[in-house]
C-alpha cells in the first residue's frame, strides 16, 4: 500500500473584504482540520452539503490554492512549494461548462492542453484520437466548442483531464449535466482508470453513484469530517445510502 494523497489537519480560510472606506474583512473557514489518506489505485469519494469544503479541498490538492495550515501532500510532495513535481503527474475534471476555449474546436483545445502538459506531439495526437473516442466526441471534434451542448462541453472537460495520462485524477462533480448515457460513460472511464492502476478522487451529490464506485469515502460537513469509511461502513444498518447520509448530517447539525 502506497499513500498517494496525504491530508493532515488541513485548514483553509478565505478572507474577503467589503467597503471602500472602512474596509471590513470577513474570514470564512472553508476547510477546518480535515485528515485522510488515499492509497494508490483507490477510488475515493468526498461527499457533503453545498459549501462543505469539497471544492476547496480539491483545489488545495491540485496545487491551485495554498493551505492556511496543515499537511497537504500529493505523490509525496507538498502541494504548495513542490507543485512542479506534482503537476505533470496529476489532472482534474471540474463539472460544468467552464474551463474550455469556446472559440476552438475540441481537438484544438486538447492539442493546446497537451502542449501545456508537455506531451510530445506524436503521442499527443495519438492520445487525442483515443480520448475523443472514449468520451464520444469524435464526430464533433472539429466543430467550435461554442456550438456544443452542456454535456458535450462536460465531455470535453473529461477529455482534457486525461490528456497527460495522469496517475491521479481529481474530479469535482464530474457527472453534472451529463445525460444518463454520459454518466454511465464516465463511470466506465473511472473504472477503467482504476483497472489501469490510477487513483481517482471524486466528489458527487449523487449518492448511488458514490456507493457504486467508491472504495472508501469521507463525508464533509462545514469543513469537518463527519464520517469516513467504506460505503458499507457508512451505510451501516440503514437501508440506503441516502438514509445514512441524512441521518449523519442531521446528527452533526444538532
Amino acid at each position: 500500500m502506497e499513500p498517494v494523497i496525504e491530508v493532515r489537519d488541513l485548514r483553509r480560510d478565505y478572507v474577503t473584504s467589503k467597503g471602500l472606506l472602512r474596509r471590513k474583512t470577513q474570514t470564512v473557514r472553508a476547510v477546518d482540520g480535515v485528515s485522510f489518506t488515499v492509497e494508490r489505485g483507490e477510488i475515493f469519494g468526498m461527499l457533503g452539503q453545498n459549501g462543505a469544503g469539497k471544492t476547496t479541498t480539491i483545489k488545495m490538492l491540485i496545487t491551485l490554492l495554498a493551505p492556511t495550515s496543515g499537511v497537504c501532500r500529493v505523490l509525496g510532495c507538498d502541494t504548495f512549494g513542490q507543485e512542479k513535481q506534482i503537476r505533470p503527474r496529476i489532472n482534474f475534471i471540474f463539472g460544468g461548462e467552464m474551463g474550455v476555449y469556446r472559440r476552438l474546436s475540441a481537438r484544438d483545445n486538447l492539442k493546446y492542453f497537451g502542449n501545456l502538459y508537455g506531451v510530445p506531439p506524436r503521442l499527443r495526437d495519438e492520445r487525442i484520437e483515443e480520448i475523443l473516442r472514449l468520451v464520444d466526441l469524435e464526430e464533433a471534434a472539429d466543430r467550435l466548442a461554442e456550438t456544443y451542448s452542456k454535456g458535450m462541453l462536460q465531455r470535453l472537460q473529461i477529455a482534457r483531464g486525461l490528456i497527460n495520462d495522469p496517475e491521479i485524477v481529481f474530479m469535482d462533480e464530474p457527472t453534472v449535466g451529463l445525460d444518463p448515457l454520459g454518466a454511465h460513460m464516465l463511470r466506465d472511464i473511472i473504472r477503467r482508470l482504476r483497472d489501469a492502476g490510477k487513483t481517482v478522487l471524486l466528489t458527487t451529490h449523487y449518492l448511488p453513484e458514490a456507493e457504486e464506485l467508491c472504495d472508501r469515502m469521507v463525508i464533509l460537513n462545514r469543513g469537518k469530517i463527519a464520517a469516513s469509511g467504506t460505503p458499507a461502513q457508512i451505510r451501516g444498518a440503514e437501508e440506503t445510502m441516502e438514509d445514512a447520509y441524512l441521518r449523519l448530517i442531521r446528527e452533526v447539525e444538532v
Partner: peptide, 8 residues
C-alpha cells in the same frame, strides 16, 4: 486557473 495549474 487551468493555466496556473498546468506544468508549463
Amino acid at each position: 486557473s487551468l493555466l496556473f495549474a498546468v506544468p508549463a
